[in-house]
């Protein structure tokens, strides 16, 4: 049985009929067509599917779409800055924070959530606050450097777009 779901995805209001058991990640990928959010472990262990729900990082594989009624969802597709990479994405590019790249959308979203709450985290804080995201290629050093790059970029140029809305 489907019910009507009204919510905002990347700033756009949407109304879709969804089944009660539809997961947010499947809603985003299959219904909305935003395939930037990846499915990894499918059980909340790896962080690949991290999106922002009302500005906070959340696993879209453990969240029901219908539970997000009235909420504001942001995905990796909203992170770019007017068609250009934003500071966090530039960090992953410049510091080689992505190898195979599969964890990267989740990493960028987790970093985005972190920098909104805390624009100047030290290395320990970055490590702790991004602990829900697993990368199987790198040793995390490059990922930490990527986030630190973004912190410095945003400090140097406060007008650069860090957040989507």
């Amino acid at each position: 049985m489907k019910s009507l779901l009204s919510l905002t995805v990347n700033g756009r209001q949407r109304d879709d009929g969804v089944a009660g058991n539809l997961l947010l990640v499947d809603y985003l990928r299959e219904v909305v067509g935003l395939t930037g959010t990846k499915i990894g472990c499918d059980g909340g262990e790896c962080g690949l599917c991290t999106v922002l729900v009302d500005g906070k990082a959340q696993h879209s594989c453990l969240t029901l779409a219908a539970s997000c009624a009235g909420k504001d969802i942001e995905t990796i597709e909203a992170m770019s800055d007017g068609g250009r990479l934003n500071a966090i994405q530039r960090g992953f590019h410049e510091k080689l924070g992505a190898q195979c790249g599969f964890c990267t959308p989740g990493m960028v979203m987790a970093a985005e959530a972190l920098l909104r709450d805390n624009p100047d985290p030290d290395e320990d804080t970055i490590r702790t606050e991004m602990a829900s995201n697993i990368c199987r290629c790198t040793g995390y050093v490059k990922i930490i450097e990527a986030v630190q790059f973004a912190v410095d970029e945003i400090k140097a140029n406060p007008n650069s777009k860090q957040e989507a809305a």
Binding site: G44, G47, T50, V53, A57, T63, S132
Partner: peptide, 9 residues
Amino acid sequence: VAGPTHRRY
């Protein structure tokens, strides 16, 4: 408990 993302919801 778990990781930071789990604790947020």
